[in-house]
Write a protein that binds this DNA or RNA. Structure first.
Lengths: 330, 330
DNA sequence: TTGTAGGCGTTATCAA
DNA sequence: TTGATAACGCCTACAA
């Protein structure tokens, strides 16, 4: 494994000159640089980024902890972040916590150890106060996505209640009254139930709280969903989160319900199948989320934001109208 | 930022003792170790993994370059790899090349620079011979996924022609004859067209080569697919790759074709929507692929495989039967 | 078991 | 512009 020294020797210059040849804006004669680069080519030399980072105390690493990669929604955000980061010379390091706070903690600590200059994570709960504080104290640029779990950390979140509001209103306006909201008990940005209630209120329609069902997507079986559907006999369903939409559709198949003929439906997160299946869905701007996250990180890293107080960006979802909501005559 | 030295001082021991306190299997008095760890806690110290890697020349980094993350299929492989890698103390570093060989090269070079101990990539073409050779020469454990582009590199691939064979046979046995294969021109593991032809041959059914259409998923518009469907009027379609399935379904919507009433369909890659839409699909064992990749990497890294010759693992896909293929009476 | 000293590969400082 | 020298933070003989 050739080192800078080997190159320097072969090129007949000092190590410092060799070092300079590999960096921009260093004072070096073009001729010397070329000689060094030539030697490097011959020996197949590549700068050791570990040593470079150690010396310069700039790792250019950004740690990203994702809670659930199976959701293609997150994949798109990662892609967006990776693209933007690379433009600025940073490298994305990926971890999954699967929503487990203990794993999240491990991952965050690892990022600290790797001297990551920035970290993006998606806290499901406020369970790692010490570790997050440590990151902050270390001066690591920090962003929490979707959930404002730690109030001293920059946040990017989505106005989920607005999504539920749009969905519920849309369905109500099509004449439905028994609208099942499959709500999630994760403490995300804002409670979908609020938006749901707001829609009823605004339209002056009485609300039956039984139709708001808080469930845990991780534990919920398709059978559970089937049971809910038969128990409550809703004419329409809002899936509060991506996975729940899948479970709803699976349950529909088992019960031989057709959408929208037998039951109307609005999905959350418009990726992959809603478009294919012509299903109306609440949509979040994934690329924008990723882009914003990176920008906020870089602003912190470059000190463009020198305030101590945390910044919060809230993004509004929209409703992509398709044909999964039937008009009911009453 | 506290260093090992600071900890040592505070604990009243030497740097080496402090160092030992953080590692397993080192000879150190429990009492001393505790004092060191206590000091670390007080100062919020975390070992600098960069320095550690530099010194020990073990970065524990595994670089993964993905060609297309939008395909949830890849996301699942990444998840599987990340899980397995973490168990063994390695960290996944992620990059996207989007199928661009130039970007792929950049990414591979970056991995070298980061002193990655292993690299997994998905070459679309054999365009980076120099760089891949360099990796190999450097002793980086190397795996190419899906495409045996470089013959001196370990490979994990899927028998794609088998997938196409199973699909075509299944459709033929349901009485179809005009079966459009949307084939891809990426030089993947094995040509789907071969499997398609094999099915016809085996059943002694004459084949019309016009029904094998090699297309480029990246450039192909839904309109193109519509045009193909109207031109050839197939009674069934096999989408050779994930994205093409989506485009097919979109085209169906535009043309008001129903699956399977008006046209039968088999998808490639059984993730996300085929199950929801009750569509028969060729399925690849994603978790197994990821797991195998990691095992092969670790074997190389640990020298369990000390041969020079490359290893190749080929996985067979299966056909998940659902109800998107109609039986034709002829 | 503990401490000392040297070095991993690079960059920064300072003279020349 | 160039080169010698000293770090960056850690690990590891080796000696005590």
């Amino acid at each position: 494994m050739p080192t800078l020294n080997d190159i320097a020797q072969r090129a007949g210059v000092s190590t410092s000159s060799a070092s300079r040849a590999f960096r921009e804006g260093t004072s070096i004669t073009p001729e010397v640089r070329e000689r060094v680069l030539q030697a490097a080519r011959e020996l197949g030399y590549t700068p050791n980024l570990l040593a470079r980072s150690l010396k310069s105390s700039r790792s250019n690493l950004i740690g990203v902890d994702v809670c659930n990669i199976e959701n293609p929604f997150y994949a798109l955000i990662i892609k967006s972040m990776e693209n933007e980061l690379k433009k600025h010379g940073y490298q994305l390091v990926l971890s999954y916590s699967n929503g487990d706070p203990k794993v999240e903690r491990k991952n965050l600590e690892l990022f600290v150890g790797m001297q990551a200059m920035g970290v993006v994570f998606m806290p499901l709960a406020r369970k790692n106060m010490d570790t997050v504080r440590l990151l902050k104290k270390r001066g690591v640029a920090l962003i929490q996505l979707f959930n404002r779990a730690y109030d001293f950390v920059d946040t990017i979140s989505v106005l989920d209640d607005q999504g539920a509001y749009l969905a519920a209103k849309h369905i109500l306006q099509h004449g439905h009254r028994q609208i099942l909201l499959l709500n999630v008990d994760t403490p995300f940005s804002s409670d979908r139930a609020d938006g749901y209630r707001r829609a009823f209120q605004e339209l002056g329609i009485p609300l039956d709280e039984r139709y708001i069902r808080t469930v845990n997507p991780a534990n919920l079986s398709s059978q559970d969903v089937e049971a809910l559907l038969t128990e409550l006999a809703p004419t329409a369903v809002i899936a509060g989160v991506y996975d729940l939409g899948k479970k709803f559709l699976t349950a529909c198949r088992a019960l031989h319900y057709r959408v929208p003929e037998d039951i109307s439906f609005v999905a959350f997160d418009d990726v992959e199948w809603p478009e294919l299946m012509d299903i109306t869905a609440v949509s979040q701007p994934m690329e924008y989320l990723g882009l914003t996250a990176v920008r906020m990180l870089l602003d912190r890293i470059n000190g463009s934001i020198d305030m101590n107080q945390p910044v919060s960006t809230i993004v509004e979802p929209k409703l992509n109208l398709r044909s999964s909501v039937k008009t009911l005559r009453r």
